[in-house]
Design a protein around this nucleic acid. Sequence first.
DNA 1: CATCTGACGACCG
DNA 2: GCGGTCGCCAGAT
Length: 113
Amino acid sequence: MSWAPVYRLVKRIPRGRVTTYGELAKALKLRGGARAVGYAMAACPNGQGIPWHRVIGAGGRLLMPEPQALKQRKLLETEGVALDGARVDMDAYGWSPVKTKKPKTKGKRAKVR
DNA sequence: CATCTGACGACCG
DNA sequence: GCGGTCGCCAGAT
């Protein structure tokens, strides 16, 4: 399966912002397919401009095993995302793909929540 | 075709 | 807050 849309969305994530698998799944209409999204990320071609580290679990919780999680934390911090231990403040850095998704019809509501 | 597993999410105890 | 279970989709065996 071509996870192009997933990768595309991930690439759309602005710097200093994060999103969750669930959000991505919903944005792509993959209801309950959070796992599928996770799978896509796991199979994501590393080194192709895909900021996988901006993709986290629900509630802004880091999932991946430690080695990757640590790296992810570091990368996020570098991008300006404040991490609360293994937690990310979704209320502050949570990016909504569905709302920010290509504002075709004017600006509409570019407000989070 | 059946079964298990997985970088998930939500629910329950 | 933590751990276990079920449901979801996709891929591998």
